[in-house]
């Protein structure tokens, strides 16, 4: 494969993968929803879980985006410094988004700010949004695709606490966001919490947190404990699917953290709706790939 062919091949794979994840949920989310459904006892909540399951079956059979809001397309890239198409990746992903929009079809979700015009292509200034991490001494690339829908994006919040507020303040912040604005964001939610030094670092980590698998744990024992306490506590509140009350509120709580300034605790919350459409794909240098998030997926 020469370089031009390689670019076309990678673009085609990423376009197809972007479309794919809008139609079928990743394994971890699917399994968790099935588990929550069996635990539910409230009749209204059970009816909603039934609609959710019927919807995912219909989306699969009819080969259509399972939710009409296919979001703003975001790619979280973890690329080896020696990945052969490192310099081309930005253009590849932009073209993949254009192609996915036609193939999906995806809803047109890129509105140019200030001009206030929908571009009709899902591309625009800095959109698709790219988040980069460069891995030294590696020649592969792992890409997480995320469809950032409006509903699940709306609760997003960040602030900087004073250290005196401590992790107790983090707890208040998470509960306030989820029990007020999270109710409208299609629960059961996957809650991402960033604990860091400033608003933007915490916000980025909170988004990275919802890319982590449902049921995975932070490596730090205190952070893992807090994940568990927040998950159990939010479930005790019993928000239920669509805020109609029920046995659970969340699919899980994932925390990502960094070191912080001694005078600040940056905290942020990002939420993923029950239709948490994300996918993880890993490329080798020869562009052969493995789909991590959806077992047995064929593009």
């Amino acid at each position: 494969m020469n370089k031009d062919e390689a670019i076309l091949s990678l673009t085609d794979t990423m376009a197809k993968f972007t479309v794919y994840i809008g139609k079928r949920l990743p394994n971890d989310v699917k399994d968790k929803l099935a588990e929550l459904r069996t635990m539910e006892t409230n009749p209204l909540a059970k009816a909603v879980y039934t609609s959710m399951a019927e919807n995912q079956d219909a989306a699969d059979k009819l080969d259509r985006p399972s939710c009409q809001d296919t979001g703003v397309i975001q790619y979280f890239i973890s690329a080896g410094a020696r990945f052969p198409l490192l310099g081309e990746l930005e253009e590849v992903l932009r073209n993949a988004t254009l192609e996915a929009t036609r193939m999906g079809p995806l809803r047109h979700n890129a509105v140019e700010t200030f001009d206030e015009k929908n571009t009709g292509t899902n591309t625009g200034s800095r959109i698709p949004w790219l988040d980069w991490e460069i891995v030294p001494d590696d020649d592969g690339a792992t890409i997480d695709v995320y469809m950032a829908g409006g509903g699940c994006t709306l609760p997003g919040s960040a602030k900087v606490l004073m250290p005196g507020e401590g992790y107790e303040g983090v707890t208040d912040f998470v509960f306030d966001v989820i029990t007020s604005r999270g109710v409208n964001a299609c629960p059961p939610l996957l809650v991402g919490v960033g604990v860091s030094t400033s608003v933007e670092t915490a916000a980025r980590l909170s988004k990275r947190a919802i890319l982590r698998e449902v049921g995975s744990h932070n490596a730090n024992p205190n952070a893992a404990l807090m994940e568990k306490l927040l998950e159990e506590g939010l479930n005790e509140v019993g928000i239920g699917p669509q805020g109609l009350t029920g046995a659970s509120s969340v699919m899980g709580v994932n925390i990502e953290a960094s070191a912080r300034h001694p005078s600040t605790i940056g905290v942020a919350v990002s939420t993923g709706c029950w239709a948490h459409r994300r996918g993880k794909i890993r490329f080798k240098a020869d562009l052969s790939y493995e789909i991590i998030s959806h077992k047995g997926a064929v593009l």
């Binding site: 401590g166 992790y167 107790e168 983090v170 707890t171 208040d172 509960f175 029990t179 007020s180 109710v183 205190n222 404990l225 807090m226 306490l229 927040l230 506590g233 005790e236 509140v237 019993g238 928000i239 805020g243 109609l244 009350t245």
Partner: peptide, 20 residues
């Protein structure tokens, strides 16, 4: 429902705070 959630959350939050 939100009023119920806000009532329910108070003791839950206090319990978590004592552990973090």
């Amino acid at each position: 429902n939100k009023a119920v959630f806000n009532e329910k959350k108070k003791p839950v939050v206090e319990k978590i705070k004592s552990q973090v």
